[in-house]
Design a protein around this nucleic acid. Structure first.
Lengths: 262, 262
DNA sequence: ATAACCGGTTTGGGATCCCAAAAAAAGAGC
DNA sequence: GCTCTTTTTTTGGGATCCCAAACCGGTTAT
């Protein structure tokens, strides 16, 4: 479906964020041609895209260098996205024609509630919850009246954990009963925040909508920081992706992409 | 200095935001090659960059289409940037090592004060004021501790009025004595906001720093909206650039670019 | 008359070639 | 033995070529 350069950019992007290139490693067009079995043209197009995304930078002299993001970068980016979402929540609460989209938010909240109540914390359930969570957040971004907020978020979504509505789950914790309880509590807390945001938007309480959305975003940041402290060695981005449960989606996406490219 | 594709992207970008292409106009690689006298390779690289910036989009079938931003888009983008700046102000107020950069802010404020006091509203003075204004805003973005904020702002700076610290001046108004008074008042108001932001950051009053910075950003939005209402026909982006006083800088930049490319 | 079909043309994607500049390696001078 | 210079190699930028898919126009069949 997509052209090779876009696909290629996705691959290289994946390699960079997963840490397959050393931080600051020099990257060569020829090598990329060789490893990905394509000509230089799509490689160069892909590199331009990645350069715009800030994942690589062009040296003044010659050559490209990897700008591999670390966990701190991701945390900063999550903070930015959260802040933008809080603006979106405020604007949507102020928007006169917000009422028509409110049912979408309500449906997402109720669906998450239902899934939590069922209590199955398997992959399928988590994916469904994440999907509804994404619906909730995307809806606010898209219906706030300022399209540029959504655009800006999409420009920074290439980093892991920055897909709108991404959530963090601790696989390790999910395997124990106590861990399940804790994750369940987090989900309930998150969705209750959704409810407050929903009601604030409904009532037109812009300040409250913004504030709770901000708090909602901070929840994820703090949770990631809990990971950071608990992990003995350095927490890598790979760990984050594994934790997030997005790896499943990502993997599926990759294989389909491969099938098409072959 | 820069490679042709970067330079070319700048040209096309300029053409698009200045409205030289009709909104939704189809754009062809071959035509760009012809008009800019370059081969297709740099054209395609430039188009990828512009695509990332959202100024053009690739049709699923074939061909590129321009996404010319209108004044409303610019207003939305200014709102986003302002919101990000307010986050930066808050974070900087919370940052423990903010004290070392405070003198930079103070110097910028004092320099602006001095220039206002002189009262000459000619091009040179306005440029100096804008420069110091940019210093103030850039410093906060760069020293807030979250580098991703500055990065995100830089990603959306390709639109006019989005250069950090850009200001709007009404040329028309500047020509009359009453208009000068009014512009002078705006500058004083703006710089007094700078002072409040500075003091809030100094004291570590994060909430106030964020709030005043937000108010500071809203000032420009409201001023542009004043333009919009006063102008009989549709306000174009070209008008905004002319008003902003950036056209001088932009023009200079363009000619140097031309000299190098010829 | 309309719609389906067919050939020519346009256009963008990918590969390849050439070249200049930069980096690396080899050689000369101290 | 070290450094500066020269030569070789690498590497990225730009141009050109080829091709397949999409667009356009005309023709034909229903």
């Amino acid at each position: 479906m997509e052209s090779i350069d876009t696909e290629l950019a996705a691959r290289i992007r994946n390699d960079i964020v997963l840490g397959n290139y050393g931080e600051e490693e020099r990257i060569s067009e020829a090598r990329l041609c060789d490893t990905h079995k394509v000509s230089r043209t799509p490689v160069r197009l892909a590199l331009r895209m990645l350069e715009q995304e800030g994942l690589i930078r062009r040296s003044e002299g010659r050559g490209y260098f990897v700008n591999a993001p670390n966990v701190n970068d991701v945390l900063q980016a999550v903070q930015v996205r959260g802040h933008l979402e809080s603006l979106a929540a405020r604007l949507m609460a102020q928007s006169p024609d917000r009422l028509s989209t409110l049912p979408i938010l309500e449906a997402a909240i109720e669906e998450i509630d239902r899934l939590i109540l069922v209590g199955k914390m398997d992959h399928a359930s988590i994916r469904l919850i994440q999907k509804q969570n994404a619906v909730f957040h995307k809806t606010i971004l898209e219906c706030c009246g300022n399209d540029f907020i959504g655009f800006t978020c999409s420009r920074i979504s290439h980093m892991p954990m920055l897909e709108v509505g991404a959530m963090v789950f601790d696989r390790q914790v999910l395997s124990t009963k106590e861990g399940k309880e804790r994750s369940n509590f987090r989900l309930k807390l998150g969705n209750s925040q959704h409810k407050v945001i929903f009601e604030a938007i409904q009532k037109g309480d812009a300040v409250r909508a913004e504030g709770v959305m901000r708090e909602h975003s901070n929840t994820m940041i703090e949770y990631i920081q809990v990971f950071e402290k608990r992990t003995k060695e350095e927490l890598t981005i790979k760990d984050l992706i594994d934790y997030s449960g997005l790896s499943v989606m990502r993997k599926e996406h990759d294989t389909t992409g491969k099938e098409k490219s072959l």
